[in-house]
Design a protein around this nucleic acid. Sequence first.
DNA 1: CAAGTGATGGGACTTTGTCCCATCACTATA
DNA 2: TATAGTGATGGGACAAAGTCCCATCACTTG
Lengths: 195, 195
Amino acid sequence: MPYPVPMARWQPNARERLALAALELFAERGYENTTVIDIARRAGLTKSTFFRHFQDKREVLFGDGTITGWVVEAIAAAPATATPLEAVARALEAVGREAFTPARREFSARRRAVIAANPELREREALKGLGLTASMAGALSRRGVPDLTSRVAAELGALAWEIAYERWIDSANGGDFSELARRALGELQAASALC
Amino acid sequence: MPYPVPMARWQPNARERLALAALELFAERGYENTTVIDIARRAGLTKSTFFRHFQDKREVLFGDGTITGWVVEAIAAAPATATPLEAVARALEAVGREAFTPARREFSARRRAVIAANPELREREALKGLGLTASMAGALSRRGVPDLTSRVAAELGALAWEIAYERWIDSANGGDFSELARRALGELQAASALC
DNA sequence: CAAGTGATGGGACTTTGTCCCATCACTATA
DNA sequence: TATAGTGATGGGACAAAGTCCCATCACTTG
């Protein structure tokens, strides 16, 4: 309809283009053999612009906190009668619904392989994981859950996340992340009893 | 006694001198306001030598894996009848006995403050924490503990470590790390039941 | 006494990340 | 229509991290 499509001054979605270019290049030739300038060039941009969008080279593979937001909201929104672990289970379900959808499985698999192959990226992911766990614990505390219980439940949630994520990526068919997460959480709860 | 002390060609303990110089400088003027060249100079060495002893600037604040070794050995050495959490408790006790002694509390407090003040250092610590947790889980698995149980017990151990470490550092008197760790582990076990 | 060893010094080089200023299509206002 | 912003981008200078390779030289070994 809009015939006179206003020619944008710049190509849109610079951030997304950079992130995609980075993932491609990292997968093709490895993280350490890829320069920030390479990434920017493939995205049709420059080094300056790259660092305007991302704090550093690692950050280009990590989201902007949207997932953390969903997790926190889901925990807050759980019924008042829900146990801490039930609230965590709903958070993982929300992640499966909003983020780890079947359409993104391929992308997630590539991203995961790239991160696994590089220590710097694993390090960044470790920090992101701590942050997410702390956010879950905080959200549980705001529900009135005692401090240590919050932290334990959050750790179990993080562990279930990891396990479910791995199974989701590795499942040849299209397993559902939400289901896998719920199952993992159940297994962990059972395992806790054996400690 | 040793009159003819053989004059060593170089000052000994280059690695330790570098680590000490780094901690001092980071505490004095902050991690990002300290150059690797600054550190080397204070230790009477050069940048080349610094990078010969440490992979990167962050690593200068982190040990060489000795603690991990003690933890793994302690878990392996626990009686066959010990539960997973009991084995973990012995590992934490070993750490208190070998590493977190009263004499090193002051040092640990400074080191902790420096790390807490810098994102890069927190990131490195996060990765080290993951490694240690994985080591504990591995040691438990080698005892025949089922996989998920190992991982849960290791996570609880890591959490108890964090909590006990913080309390140990903050205790004005000289609390004993081993005791604090055992108590923290007990509290976490109780908290697990409320999940 | 000669050859070797090994921790250190030193300098060239690439890359990351910071800073600051220039550019220029688009926008709002007069 | 003229004019003064706005804001995402470009570009270059710069400091520091980290890599590489060769030189040095007290000590050791045969």
